[in-house]
Design a protein around this nucleic acid. Structure first.
Length: 673
DNA sequence: AGGCCTCGAGTTCA
DNA sequence: CTCGAGGCCT
């Protein structure tokens, strides 16, 4: 185990690193790590500073220096940025503070809120005189910004002339739509240029182009959201008295505004917006990283005023981070039921997207080499598809001096034959040399009862472990000879729970042929291949008798799979297992009648949660109507059926131009036959 | 031979 | 979800 450097060393390292990235971000528009990874480093720095130096964080410094190339402009109205809150409690603290201040000012604390998307773009201050755009300036450090009028004028939705000849200073967000961002990066990659880290940087980089024609080709977008100064001139336009009226006025003047701006009577309503927007986050054309909550009444805003750092009348309510940094404490090896060895990183626990993550798979040796992950390293972590943690990269400057490259062990304790493992030439994975160690046998048992195989609900890994420990089972077939009394000898089992376990096992005594096949745990044979075999041969007897040539004749089964299956059934010990299982399990003949041919020849991919179907239920339904179910989206996919909270497959479909339909449309389609 | 398209296997947390 | 690899098509 590598010795960790003393925390004060890490503090110094962190401090240098944070200031480095701050410069990269603010001055050069070219951050090397995501904002969230950066925030995560800042948070650690702040906590170390608190611990060792009693607070006074360098992590607090706001803003950055201004690059030379552009004309500096001092803002007529100082440009603040809102403080952040991260949960409901902090949000209500913010609101309580406002109430207290109003009371102290002898005011009745009556006000409402406005919630709007916090778009991950960059703030732009526009000055119109007599209805004509005369200047567009970036926020800069809030006091001095940069004149980017020449590039701002290339934003298609930004009016050069307003509908009324008023004087107004307004503020809004410049951003690049996700789709445009991806396209830009693709082009840059092709031309060997550095890609932008995120849409905001692409927007910032574009706005700060010296050459306006480059900016024009990049398709910037803009939403106005605030009025800093307003003079109606002689247009008898009323000055807005609320945030909502400001929006209306902006729209009225011909400026583009976001439709998602929502008035809220109380914080509960704000929370409803927050939850809904968080859920729908991926469906917006732009990235959002939070919800801006403002007090609606301008008169109240004025009283609340500003702290040294930020306005009191508004707050940025951040969405759960999807990236964070943490430390790799160890790299562990796990053995699967096929003897494949998978390296897993053990991490210092860290919160991402609403859950605490302590482990993340590293897949295989090549992946570890690619990332060059070492024990002791600080890594950037993200959730792939909202669930599975993924190590994105290593933060090299935080690597301990004594960190050694990870050497893939050749021996894993617990594996049979002295624990020897080997990497098969031409393959990415290591495998145990001996394939029937207790470790692997246990994994096979886990698989046997799992959802993918016999789906014995209520007998999971924990109970398998207990059964093994008490020597009540050895082979998968033994599970079917267990009696209620056997379970009662296990710790934690009472009358009721033992009965439940037995009931679950009894329920598994009847299986369709394909599930029986899956449960055998033959390498390469999962649900799809098992279905093919079951449908083609019709009975277990026929499969036992099938030759390699018989199987290769199936569309979807090749040489490799056929040899594996054939070889498996040739082995005496496997034949014995099959015979024994047959004595416990009744193989039901599959009489799934076709309901219609509505989906004949169509390939369907399902994502998200459906109202009327379970995961297995919908697959069954699609097959009943002649369709096939696939797990990944491709050009050949007929359509993607998306329920609520869909995953990345919707994005895949969009990219490939594959139609996406909802459950209702699907039901109509199959009903029409 | 090369390029999709699919499937299997392993994985995380509440 | 991601990665690797088998299978099929061109």
């Amino acid at each position: 185990m590598a010795k960790k450097p003393p925390s004060s060393d890490r503090l110094a390292q962190l401090r240098a690193l944070v200031s480095y990235h701050r410069e990269k971000y603010h001055r050069d528009d070219s951050p090397e790590i995501s904002d969230e990874a950066y925030d995560s480093l800042v948070a650690e720095l702040a906590s170390l500073e608190e611990k060792f130096e009693g607070g006074r964080s360098t992590a607090d410094v706001v803003g950055g220096s201004v690059r030379e190339a552009f004309a500096k402009v001092t803002h007529e109205v100082e440009q603040w940025s809102f403080d952040n809150v991260f949960d409901e409690e902090e949000l209500s603290e913010w609101s309580n503070r406002a109430v207290r201040i109003l009371r102290e000012a002898d005011m009745v604390p009556m006000f409402t809120y406005v919630a709007e998307h916090k778009i991950d773009g960059l703030k732009l201050v526009l000055t119109y005189r007599a209805g004509r755009l005369i200047q567009a300036v970036t926020r800069g450090d809030g006091v001095v910004g940069e004149d980017v009028t020449h590039t701002a004028k290339t934003i298609a939705s930004l009016p050069y002339v307003l509908t009324k000849p008023v004087d107004v200073i307004c503020v809004g967000e410049v951003y690049i739509a996700k789709a445009d961002f991806e396209q830009i990066n693709e082009e840059r990659k092709e031309q060997g240029e550095l890609v932008f880290a995120n849409p905001r940087n692409a927007a910032a980089g574009t706005l700060r182009q010296l050459d306006a024609s480059v900016a024009a080709s990049r398709n910037l977008s803009f939403f106005a959201y605030d009025i800093d100064k307003f003079d109606p001139k002689n247009t008898n336009t009323k000055a807005p008295e609320t945030q909502m009226e400001e929006h209306e006025l902006l729209r009225h003047l011909g400026l583009p505004t976001n439709e998602c701006v929502t008035p809220c009577v109380d914080l509960k309503a704000v929370q409803v917006c927050y939850d809904a927007w968080n859920k729908a986050r991926d469906t917006y054309p732009y990235e959002i990283d939070g919800v801006v909550v403002k007090i609606n009444e301008v008169s109240v805003q004025r009283i609340l005023g500003y702290t040294a750092k930020a306005p009191r009348f508004g707050i940025a309510y951040k969405l759960p981070a999807v990236q964070a940094t943490t430390v790799v404490e160890a790299i562990d090896l796990q053995i699967g039921r096929t003897g494949v060895v998978t390296p897993v990183a053990h991490l210092r626990p860290v919160r991402i997207a609403g859950s605490t993550v302590a482990r993340a798979t590293l897949h295989n040796e090549d992946q570890i080499k690619r990332l060059d992950v070492r024990v002791g390293d600080t890594v950037i972590l993200q959730k792939a598809g909202d669930v599975i943690p993924e190590v994105v990269s290593v933060v090299l400057p935080l690597r301990p001096h004594d960190a050694k490259p990870y050497v893939f062990p050749q021996v894993v304790p617990g594996c049979g034959g002295d624990g020897l493992i080997e990497r098969i030439p031409g393959e990415a994975a290591y495998r145990c040399v001996v394939l029937d160690s207790p470790l692997i046998r246990r994994q096979r048992l886990y698989y046997f009862v799992s959802k993918a195989a016999l789906n014995i609900d209520g007998v999971g890994p924990k109970i398998i472990d207990a059964l093994l420990e008490h020597e009540l089972i050895a082979s998968p077939a033994d599970i079917f000879t267990l009696a209620k009394e056997d379970f009662l000898t296990l710790p934690g089992f009472k009358d009721k729970s033992a009965e439940n376990a037995i009931a679950a096992i009894d329920a598994a005594r009847t299986q369709p042929l394909y599930r029986f096949l899956v449960a055998l745990g033959i390498d390469q044979v999962g649900e799809e291949t098992a279905r093919l075999l079951a449908v083609t041969f019709g009975s277990l007897e026929a499969i036992k008798r099938a030759s390699v040539a018989d199987m290769v004749a199936i569309h979807g089964v090749g040489e490799v799979v056929a040899e594996t299956v054939y070889g498996w059934f040739q082995k005496p010990e496997n034949q014995a297992l099959v015979t024994e299982l047959e004595s416990h399990i009744l193989i039901a003949n599959e009489t799934v009648k076709a309901a219609s041919t509505a989906l004949l020849g169509q390939s369907v991919v399902v994502t998200g949660t459906l109202v009327n179907f379970s995961r297995d239920g919908i697959k069954e339904e699609i097959r009943r109507h002649g369709g096939s179910v696939s797990s990944s989206v491709s050009k050949k996919t007929t359509f993607v059926l998306a329920g609520s909270e869909p995953g990345s497959k919707v994005a895949d479909a969009r990219k490939l131009g594959v139609p996406i339909i909802d459950e209702e449309t699907f039901l109509v389609r199959i009903a029409q036959g």
